[in-house]
Design a protein around this nucleic acid. Structure first.
Lengths: 146, 146
DNA sequence: TTGACAAACGCAACCAGGTTGCAATAATGA
DNA sequence: TCATTATTGCAACCTGGTTGCGTTTGTCAA
């Protein structure tokens, strides 16, 4: 069973409807390897022949976020992106020049820091985000030739 | 000499003008303990009797960023905030409920991770952001009483 | 002190991401 | 097939942020 079907089945079992938008959106998310913005999703769906209003996409993203199936990713440009949740825990490397996003997996010990902070602050810390940004090898190359 | 005067002197020595807006903005930044949004700065300046157009504030923020005196901070709500640069290296704790921001200082070893990533990826990593978000003790309290 | 020059400014118009209210549509279970 | 209601589209709106351009104002030298 494809990953998107697993998610659809789960939604169905909770009594949610399996709409055209919802199916297409989960399909797209399952095929992506890096976080995307909502307006990009509108365009991607359109390219697949699924014409959806931006309002619907925003509402669907909020829905999928509540359902724990996608989550927000914030990178150095301040725009909101979304990616499939329940993936292997990872972080992002963002090129501030070409805006490309790649992923990195860090040692668990780094993530353990949030436990230390939780104890220190009294915060009931629910998440953390460790994002790195710089200039990727390709852009760096181009820059030196200028 | 006040911190803001040090910065003004530095700008002056580089040939930049010391305008009303610039002085007021640096004063405000030096008195703050957490990152602020541009629209908040417009309001804060107005409250001090310094009426400045939002365009000016955005341009001034870009200027101070280029001059290395302030930098952007991204938190879990995706809005752009600014804070004084050249402070002790620290990270932020953001309450997703009341939007309060507090700061935490982490062990250097965590920051050393960016070196490891730089080697791994070929990225010329110029910065990182480690932000934690959750629900602060006050909001947590309120929530349990509901 | 004055005047010239360019940096800095205000304004209006604009753009993009994101939200809201409401009426219309469509997925579901009976 | 029908009733119910979750989901959708639309239009209007909001906010953060940007741009072009004509005006103001710091600065420095005369």
């Amino acid at each position: 069973m494809a990953q998107s079907d697993v998610l659809l089945t789960e939604l169905k079992s909770h009594g949610y409807r399996l709409t055209r938008t919802r199916r297409a959106l989960l399909d797209v998310f399952c095929s992506l390897t890096c976080p995307v913005q909502a307006p990009e999703l509108v365009a991607m769906l359109a390219a697949l022949g699924v014409l959806v209003n931006k309002t619907t996409v925003y509402r669907e993203l909020a829905f999928l976020e509540r359902a724990g199936m996608v989550h927000r990713v914030l990178l150095a440009d301040g725009l909101t992106r979304y990616e499939l949740a329940r993936q292997e825990h990872h972080h992002h490397l963002f090129c501030v020049r070409c805006k490309a996003v790649s992923r990195v997996c860090l040692d668990d010990s780094i993530c353990a820091v949030s436990d230390a902070i939780r104890r220190q602050s009294g915060f009931r810390t629910i998440a953390h985000s460790i994002e790195f940004f710089g200039i990727c090898p390709r852009c760096d190359e181009g820059e030196r030739q200028e």
